[in-house]
């Protein structure tokens, strides 16, 4: 069975192109750093209302992405949402009085958790819970409040 050199070379190129495509999908299209789970630590935050936050939503400090939401649960006793975060290990120095808020990127964009650094000398460690939290900004509720206020105002007049 003769396999000519050209055929072998072409097959080699084919395999290499396929590998290059995989490499591009891994490095350029998806975020390979988020895959390296070993280089992260966990934090927990409790919210009254998480709005449209989802698993895999980003966690940011000063707008920079430092981790992601790992899982979301509901605590039946405290009647709160529990959000587990995975923070990249290179961001170890987050003061332990920092506050977590849920914000929306743009008016209709995705929701993310923003951490506002506090002034403490101590830092969060793996497994800590963020005490100070601010719930999601829910547009419908704001619009509702605004309308009621308007109605009350016009009644008083």
């Amino acid at each position: 069975m003769q396999t000519s050199r050209t055929v072998e070379i072409l097959v080699g190129i084919f395999i290499a192109l396929g590998m290059a495509a995989f490499f591009m999908l891994a490095m350029k299209v998806s975020n390979i750093t988020a895959f390296a789970e070993t280089d992260t630590y966990r934090l927990q935050a409790r919210f009254d209302n998480i709005g449209g936050l989802k698993e895999r939503s980003p966690v940011r400090i000063g707008g920079v992405r430092i981790g992601r939401v790992e899982s979301i649960n509901y605590d039946d006793e405290q009647l709160e949402a529990i959000v587990n975060l995975r923070i990249n290990s290179q961001h170890k120095r987050i003061p332990d009085d920092s506050a977590a808020s849920i914000y929306t990127a743009g008016l209709l964009g995705e929701q993310y958790i923003s951490l506002e650094p506090g002034g403490s000398e101590e830092f969060y460690a793996d497994g800590d819970t963020i005490d100070e939290t601010q719930s999601a900004f829910v547009l419908e509720r704001m619009v509702g409040k605004f309308l009621i206020q308007e109605a009350e105002n016009s009644e008083r007049r």
Binding site: V29, A34, F35, R56
Partner: peptide, 9 residues
Amino acid sequence: QMQDKVMLD
């Protein structure tokens, strides 16, 4: 945005 949203795993 693509890297943010597309997960390798």
